[in-house]
Structures are given as structure tokens and as C-alpha cells.
């Protein structure tokens, strides 16, 4: 599903050039539940941005579902993000002036899906994450765990090929974190590829495979026996 070959990425800082990714090779197959770990400065956020087609890279190749993602126009990038990817963020990023249902339905708005159909699908997903009774609530009326479940529903609504989660439990207590991780595992069990960036070992332990980054290269991989998929 995700195939990365010798990806290099550096930022120019005045006269200096800071290389963040120094040749990463990575393959994630369809239906995998993978975590990416690493200390800050290891390049995991940059890698996630590249995976999410939010950032460009200078060298190497990134194939997402068999399509090369390189030097895309903003419009193309937006199209692939919308159709191929679902994002989950640490601080949820729900729109404060839209209720839960509208937040979940938003990605379909950019696919020109009619509002009736959008809202029906959004309602189905809210049921799936156990928040059907909160559909009309505004984000500030929801708890952190509920917000993140709304965000996961939003990530799922466009039926993406990959779910990318950036520290999805970073703002949650351990009990809610567990619930959210259970939800990710359930999503993964239904056949979706899920990639979670985290710095918490406990979270990584709940994924089947962990990729450890250090100084812009893949240091090693671990596989958890008994974890999902």
C-alpha cells in the first residue's frame, strides 16, 4: 500500500542545509497496523507529512496505492489526500462551529457529495464509533476521547486507503487512550491500513509492527506478537 524508496528530505536554513530524512526505505502492506516511533528530531513528523502528501521530498520515490506521489500540484495533492488518506491529529482539529455530524461529513463536501448522502454516511460512522447520540453536539460539548472518535469517524468517511494518525492519544488520559487504540484496532480489523506516529511505547505496543526512526534513517523494526493483524 505504501512503498517508500530512498527518500531524502532537507530543509534550507539560510546558507545551511539541514537533512532530516537521509534515505528511508519503507513498505507497508494493505491491512497493516503500523506505528512509527522515534525521539524528537528523528524525522518522524517529516516522514508523516510526506506520507500525508502535505510535504515534498527531494529524492527517492513514494508510491501510495501504486501511484507515485512526487511533485504534485496543490490541486492533485488535495485530491489524493481527500480520496486516499484519512488524518487523525493529536489535538483533534475539529471545526468549532460545526457539530459532530457536520465535522465528520466535511471530507465528502470536497468530493461534491450531496448533503443528504453526506450526513447519512456521517451518521453511520458516528454510530460505528459509538457517538450517534452526540451527532448534534458541538465540539466544545464533547470530551477529549469523544472528540478523537469524531475525528476518526471523519478520517474514515471518505473510505481512504490509509489512516494516518499523528500522536492520536497525546492529549488523552490512559483510559481514553486505550479506548481510542481499541477503535484503531477495530478499524484495522475491518481491513484498513493504519499508520500511527507516537513516542509512547505503550501505544506502539498495541500495533503489530513498529518502525523505529533515529536521525533520519530507519533504525530497526519490531513485531509485537499477539497484537492486532
Amino acid at each position: 500500500m505504501i512503498h517508500i524508496q530512498q527518500i531524502r528530505k532537507s530543509y534550507r536554513m539560510g546558507a545551511l542545509s539541514l537533512e532530516v530524512l537521509k534515505g528511508i526505505d519503507l513498505t507497508i502492506n494493505e491491512g497493516e497496523l503500523v506505528s512509527i516511533m522515534g525521539p524528537s528530531g528523528s524525522g518522524k513528523s517529516t516522514l508523516l507529512n510526506i506520507l500525508g502528501i502535505l510535504d515534498q521530498y527531494q529524492e527517492g520515490e513514494y508510491h501510495l496505492a501504486g501511484t507515485l506521489m512526487k511533485n504534485l500540484s496543490e490541486r492533485k495533492a488535495a485530491y489524493y489526500r481527500n480520496h486516499y488518506l484519512g488524518f487523525v491529529f493529536q489535538s483533534f482539529h475539529l471545526l468549532e462551529f460545526k457539530n459532530a455530524l457536520e465535522n465528520v461529513a466535511l471530507p465528502l463536501y470536497y468530493q461534491k457529495v450531496s448533503r443528504r448522502r453526506r450526513n447519512r454516511q456521517a451518521m453511520e460512522l458516528l454510530e460505528r464509533v459509538g457517538l450517534a447520540d452526540r451527532a448534534q453536539h458541538m465540539p466544545n460539548e464533547l470530551s477529549g476521547g469523544q472528540k478523537q472518535r469524531v475525528a476518526i469517524a471523519r478520517a474514515l468517511i471518505s473510505d481512504p486507503k490509509v489512516i494516518l494518525a499523528d500522536e492520536p492519544t497525546g492529549a488523552l488520559d490512559s483510559q481514553t487512550s486505550d479506548q481510542v487504540m481499541d477503535l484503531f484496532r477495530e478499524v484495522n480489523a475491518s481491513g484498513k491500513t493504519v499508520v500511527i506516529v507516537t513516542h509512547e511505547a505503550e501505544i506502539a505496543a498495541k500495533t503489530a509492527r513498529t518502525i523505529h526512526l533515529r536521525d533520519g534513517v530507519v533504525q530497526n523494526e519490531t513485531h509485537q506478537v499477539g497484537a492486532a493483524s
Binding site: 485530491y79 489526500r81 482539529h93
Partner: peptide, 16 residues
Amino acid sequence: TKEIGLRKAIGAPPSD
């Protein structure tokens, strides 16, 4: 800014 960033992340084209 955050809202626009999110809209773009989930697939809003610049024209939109």
C-alpha cells in the same frame, strides 16, 4: 489558520 489548514489537509483544493 487552523481551520483552513485542516480543510486543506482533508482535501480542499486551493480554488475552494
